[in-house]
Each structure stands twice: as C-alpha cells, then as structure tokens.
Design a binder for these strands. Sequence first.
DNA 1: GGACCTCAAGTTTTT
DNA 2: CTTGAGGTCC
Length: 885
Amino acid sequence: MSTFDEMDAFEGASLSARAMAARPTPYMDGLNAAQREAVETLDGPVLMLAGAGTGKTKALTTRIVHLLTTNRARTNEILAVTFTNKAAREMKERVGRMLGQPAEGMPWLGTFHSICVKLLRRHAELVGLKSNFTILDTDDQIRLLKQLISAAGIDDKRWPARMLANIIDDWKNRALTPAKVPAGDAAAYNHRGTEFYDQYQTRLKELNAVDFGDLLLHCVEIFQNNPDLLAQYHRWFRYILVDEYQDTNVAQYLWLRLLASGHKNICCVGDDDQSIYGWRGAEVGNILRFEKDFSGAKVIRLEQNYRSTKHILSAASGVIRGNEGRLGKELWTEAEGGEKVRLIGHWDGEEEARWIGEKIDDLKTGRAPEAKNRNNPRSLGFVQEIERLIKQGLDPGSEDEYLSRVFSTGQVYSDLKVRNAVNAILQGNPGAENMLKSVLASPVDRFSLNEVTILVRASHQMRAFEDRFLTIGLPYRVIGGPRFYERLEIRDAMAYFRVVISPEDDLAFERIVNTPKRGLGDKAQQTIQMVARENGVSLIEGARLAVEEGLIKGKGGAALRRLVENIARWGQMTRAVIPNDGDEDAVLEGVQSFEEFQARTEVSHVELAEIILDESGYTAMWQADKNPDSPGRLENLKELVKALENFDNLQGFLEHVSLVMDNDKQDAEQKVSIMTLHAAKGLEFPAVFLPGWEDGLFPSQRSMDESGLKGLEEERRLAYVGITRAEEVCTISFAGNRRVFGQWQSQLPSRFIDELPEEHVEVLTPPGLYGGGYGAAAPSAAEPPVRSTIEERMSNADGYNSPGWKRMQARTAERGYSKPRKSDSQIIDLTATSSFTIGERVFHQKFGYGAIIGMEGDKLEVDFEKAGTKKVVARFVSASDDIPF
DNA sequence: GGACCTCAAGTTTTT
DNA sequence: CTTGAGGTCC
C-alpha cells in the first residue's frame, strides 16, 4: 500500500500558503552577503561552511522560510535533519516564529533517528519487521548481547559484552551489515565478532526490535533494495537540509546521498573545525569530500562572527591553524576592543578551582575589572537589532518573537526592567521605546552567573569545582550526565509499559519480572526461559505455562501468576483505550460486567500508567526504600506520568521517551554551569573558563595513544570549540599537579597553550599565592625547594617574557607535537624526597600542622593536629618553620 | 535476598 | 582514590 496519499492527506500543510497571506515578513533583513547567498542558492548541492558564531542557524532557518514563502516547496516537501532534539526543536521554533505561526506543519524536520523511525514504521515489512517494532537502548542491547555471549560459553569477563556492543555499533556507524564486515575486522572480539553480530541481528528480528544504529541502516537497506520507493521519496523530499554535517557517520552519509540522488537539492551546513565526534563514528571526511561527492556543489563560507571579541577569535584561530587538511576559514568580527584571552597556571587542581571560584564571585559582584565596561559584540548587535525593530514599528502580534529575542540574548538583559519595557512597548505605551533604549544603553557592570561557564575535557574534572563551589556557596549546575530515560526507575517503568503494550517484548519482561522482588530468582527465571523456548513462545507466555504446569511453586509461583494476569488485564485496558481502527464496538466486546466495562472504558492512558505502577508494586517498592535518593526517584516517576498527558497513548509515548525526551528542566535560578567541552558545542557564554589545559589531560593521552595525529587534531578542534564559546572573557588555566586516580602527578602545560598567539594572550598570576602578590615573587632564602620552581613555572612576573616561560616554550618546540611527553623534562623535580625525619613537625596546605609518625617511600604518615592521621605525599608537606605565612 | 567484600578500572556521548 | 560490578557468605 502506498503511503504517499496518506502522507499528503494528513501531513500536507497549507502553512506556506498561509505564510504568504500573512504580512510580508522581512525575513531577509539583517543577513550579511554570505548568509543571503546561502539562503538564496536553492538549487543543487550547497555546502554552507559556517564557523562558530557566524549565524548558521539563522541562515538555515531563513532558507527554510525562503523555500516556503517563494512556494518552492511546501512544508512537507522539505527534509531537514539535525543530530539532537534540541537543535530540531530550536529550528522548528525559529521557523515558526519567522512565519508568524507555529511550524507544526514541518513533519520532516527532526533528528536523523526520529525521521528514520517514521520511515521505518511505514516500511518495516521490507526489512522483516513489524511496524510496531521496539527501539532498544544501549542497556537492552548489552543485556541481549550478554545472553548470546553466555549461551556461547564465553567468559564475559575477558570479553565483556560492552566491548562487543561498541564493536557492533562501530560497524553500524560504518554501514556494515554482518556480511559486509571487512576481513581486516575479523579479529574483533576474539575472532567471533562477526559471528555474534550476525546472531544479534537475528535475535533483534525475532524480538521485532531495532537498536539506534539499525534505524539508519534499515532505512539505507530499504532505499537500496527498493528503487521505486526511493524514487517516490525523491519526488517527495524536494529539498534537503542537514545541520552539523561534520558529525555525520558513514551510514548517515549514505542515507543522505540516497535521498539526495534524485534532485540533488541538498544543503549541508557544518564546520570541519568543530568535528569532535570522530570517536563515535563521525567522519570529518564527509564534509571534506563534499565537493567531490556532490558534483557542481557550491561552497559558501560564513566567516563573519557575531559572538566573540577579536582577541578570542585570534586565539582560537591560532590554535586551529595547527591542524592539517582543513577546508580553511578565518573568522573575523567588526567588534572592536575586548579583553585578551587570560592564561594562568596554578599549583594544583584544587588551587585552580579555588581561584576560578573567586574569579566568578568577582565577576558576579562586579569587583572584577573585566566586569566594568563590558564589551559584548553580540549584545551590541542585539541593541542595534532592537533599535531597528523599534524603528520599523513593533507588531503587536510579535510579543513572543520579541521577548524570545530579548531573553535568548543572554541574561544581562533578562531582568525585569527589560521585560517591563518590552511589554510597555507592545501595549503601545508612549515613551516605552525610550525606556527600553535607556535600559539597553545603561552600562552593565557585572556578570550574571548564567553568563559564566566552566568547560572541562573530562567529567572527573568537575568534581574539584563542585567541591569548591559547595564550600563557598556558589550556585552551579552540571550540564550533561545521565539522561532522564536512562535512569533506573524510568527504565523500569518503561519496561512495564512495554510489556503491557507488546507482550512479546522479552527484554522488557526480563527486566520487570522480579522488580519489585517477587521471589523469582535465577532458577525460576531459567524455568521460564526453558518453557518459553520449548514451546516457541514469548517469555510472558512461557511464564504463564510454567505457572499453569506447576513448575514454579510457592510464593514465587503465586506472585508470577498475579503478574502475568495483571499484564494481561492492563493490556486489555490499553486496547480499550485505543480502539482498533476506531471501532468503538471493539471496546465493548466481551464485556461481562459493569466493573469490566468501567475498567475498559474509563481509564485514560495516564491513569493506566499509574495503575500499572501502583498495582505492580513498583511505586511501593521505592516508597519502602530508605535510600536518600528514592524520593527523587518517585519524583521522576511522577514526572514520567505527567509527561504522558501530552500523548494520545502509551505507544507514542514510549517512542518519545527513548528517542526524544531530554532532561533539561529549566530552572530560573542563576547558576554557573559546568560541563564538558563536548556538551558545550553550539552554546555561547560571555565568560568562559577552560581549566585543565595540561598535556595528557587535554589533549587527552588516550586520544593520542589510540588515534595518533588524528586524535590530536580532534583534541585541537575541541580546544577551538572551547575558546570560541566565549563572547567576552576567556580564561585558560592549567595546574602543575593533579591527583590522578589518587596518585599525585606532576603536569605539564598543554601543547595547545604554546599554540596560543602571544599577542592575544595575557598571562595572569594568582594573587596572594606562595607569599607573593602580583609579580612579587622575590624568593626568600628560607623558601622550600618547591617554591622557587613553581614561580618559574608560573612565569610569575611578566608572563611570556619570563625565563621560565621561555624555557618552557623552547622545550615544547624541541619536542614537536606528535611525540608524547612522558616524564621527560620535568620542570619541577617533584620526586626529590625530602630529608624528613620521624617526629618532625610539618605543614600541609590542606591539613595544617602535624607531626610525622611514619615514612614509606615518598609517602609520609602524619598525625595532623586538626585533620587526624593521614598519609600524604612528602612533597606536599614542608618543614613547619619554613612556611611563609 | 541482602549485606558485605574484593577487584578492576578509570574520555568525550546522541539517538 | 573512588566507583561499580560481581562474587561470597549468611
């Protein structure tokens, strides 16, 4: 059955027509020449090379609006793909805003995965699936693989399922089906990788399930094997737009190429310098090869930056210049002035956290010099835009647009004054415009905490900051971390819903069969498995049979019987709520009693979800749990049920949760955000701190070991991404010592620091450190050996010109990039163990004074006066009379 | 089934 | 060092 008519009927949209009828939108205003070209070049392949902060999303959304308003395409004829739901949502909102109405009618604007699900549900039978297939997440995937592995009698300790999952994911990213895995990969997973891959795929089909990688691959397979169908889609999707093209993997590339091969109207947007996901299958090659792949392609560069000051852009350019094989792009800005990028070295990671904490406090209160006379090019642009809009006259209907522009521009202006002024203008209040102007013109002399972020390479670096900020009471939020649907309780609840909706979902059944505890241990579960296998039925059916035949007795048996019955009953309630084919009679079929009638008809899916969680004892389980985090879990379950209200049924919801639901609950409080560099891509902040720029940590040793120069270049792009997040102030720091796995390690400044162009960097010295103020540093005779060297290292007095710095640079130059720096050229001899003696009185930065009671290698056991007995590394204590405080 | 213990590992992460 | 997964013991 062809689905195209249907698609047209229920998804076709008259939005473009309505948009045309609406007031003429000056949507092209405010675009620069390159952006305009990117918007207007509609036919043929286009690569929009958009550097950081160059108005990429603006160009992309305007392009969509342009396609619609010029009647080149209807909303359902545009395929627009993003990687994240957030990006898709933003694009939808912006398009809707520009058209002056919600863009609900853009059915094919979404993530690769959500669009693939949509396609696959339509054509599931072409790859041997039913259209109600389940989408497995990583956890399900691994449990499934574990079963296969243990069935094959393999020691999953030596050969962990997680490893196999990664291998299979990698193959899927590269669009390799089991048959196509190259011989070179045969050694994977103890030479049995392909074998398990094959088994895994078979098992997925049996379960009517797909994993994330399959969503793409199955679509590719369908298109490759069904040219007629593909041709239909060519006619259907007249224009294709792709965001973040540098992040596409091989499967996504093939998918796009197949879909674009008809009309070739594909516009890919990306930045090769921001490709930071190579380790999960992204191929920078895709964007580098674009002109070869799509002949006649037009490349349009967006290079004017509206985000950062000159110094920041120059520093970023200086770093990224170290990479080979770039498409080449140089960011520039009209903005004048601004602070140089700050560079500072610290004694250790804790000191770094302490310093940054203080600095943030200074920014917040306006005590910091850079908080005075803030120079934010983006904010300036914003003021101009507001003024332009005011000149044009405000449309009373544009309140949303107006406010969202105001509030998306940074928190400086998001105070009540601005809100009031905007509302006053929109209400036609005379004089309100001047009021807004004066609010916008008034100098901003502090940073809101929302404007400040700390970007780290690895999440373990966050801890030092959290500890410190907790101590000083600085509000922060950590971005990233486990997603909502990855939480245990959410996954359990989902498994209940899944098992109710599709009783053949064995993985879901396994998950909940003994959660909460029903006295069904390994043995009982094995019996269920066995019965199911012998009869060739699903686990739940197997469980029913096992109970019936008395194979599982006692308390467990009774509980299992109840569970199986409950699932069946809940299932009936679901079906009652969603009548098949809209046949209302089906709801009443076989109804014997009023109670049953009630049960079947008067329960919404939201209520049903509550019933399932209650009657299964799942809610009770957490209520009884006295762990401190169980109230939070119950809270999450409530949130889950509440989220259900936005859906018509459980089924639609399941997909939403596994594919779409994210975790960013907006909270109004002003907080510093802490996140990884990866998580920061696409974001921007007036003040950015980049701590931990030390070789081995950043660039990460592992990256370089595993991927060599390629890895290093990706790390360098990460550095580029980090710097270009900053609008006004960018502070890079490193620590001389860091505790790595409980072991103190001396660190060398990152090679990326050497690549920062000197003229755009200002070297700071931490005040009050080691007895000196700014540049004080006259070494006293009594100072411990460590002190003089640390001063050298931090190039205390005049930064780049200090001998220490020069020597450091000379050394790094000798070494070149690619050679790993191990323990060569220690600047500070931290290993020199001291001449401590037992009983000696010593001082430690953190623990204070104490007496040595034992020694072992370079570790001392010290009985501290306040902190008690601790083992400390000798180099962190000094003889107490040497202390310069 | 749960409390306790041992042992290994320990980047980045979306869907 | 710290966390988490798995195993052991009651």
